[in-house]
């Protein structure tokens, strides 16, 4: 019964009002979007505790009201030159399944609504040329500007999962 209720909630609550809404942010010259249902909150940049021996894009840990969450630098993740954080730099806290991760972005642009039909799949040619297109699941044109829509699951997982899976057994052996 509770499942039904949740479903109802989804339908007339989040589902309807947040459908097609994307939080957009600026990285370098491009504008990226992420489905708003994933977004938990946005916080300003704060002191980050680095964790050694992790991938370069994992910047470390931050403390949000007692919860310790990892943050990744989307700039670095998208293979762009890192740059110093300014007061416009923001952390978008997203929840993907049970994982909560903070995304460091240059600047928040705003919320846009995109009709599902208007989303264009990225042309297949670009997949081999641009390194970051595997995180982009679609393109949307809003006000004559193209927004790259990111798949957060791929953004935070993707090859890491594989890398992790591969390294896990060897790690075990080392410990034993």
């Amino acid at each position: 019964m509770s499942d039904e209720l949740d479903l109802m909630d989804d339908l007339d609550g989040r589902g309807d009002t947040q459908k097609g809404m994307f939080m957009t942010f600026q990285i370098a010259d491009e504008c990226y979007g992420i489905a708003i249902t994933y977004v938990d909150e946005i916080v300003g940049i704060q002191s980050i505790t680095a964790v050694p021996e992790t991938e370069d894009y994992i910047r470390g840990l931050i403390n949000i009201r007692g919860k310790i969450i990892p943050v990744i630098d989307v700039r670095v993740r998208l293979r762009q030159e890192p740059r110093a954080y300014t007061d416009r730099t923001c952390i978008i806290v997203i929840g993907v399944k049970s994982t909560v991760v903070g995304l460091i972005v240059d600047e928040i642009a705003g919320v846009i609504t995109v009709d599902e039909k208007e989303i264009i799949l990225p042309p297949s040619l670009s997949q081999s040329t641009a390194g970051n297109s595997k995180y982009v699941f679609g393109l949307a044109r809003v006000d004559n500007e193209v927004k790259l829509l990111l798949d957060p699951e791929k953004l935070i997982r993707d090859e890491d999962v594989e890398a992790f899976d591969e390294s896990a057994p060897t790690g075990e052996v080392v410990e034993a």
Binding site: T49, I68, T99
Partner: peptide, 25 residues
């Protein structure tokens, strides 16, 4: 615990929050 998203780093067993809100490993 260190969030599981960050894979295990040998030699680190967890993290904690210090009095000033910063995090120590």
């Amino acid at each position: 615990p260190i969030p599981s998203y960050i894979k295990k780093v040998q030699g680190l067993s967890g993290c904690t929050q210090l009095g000033d809100g910063s995090i120590a490993l």
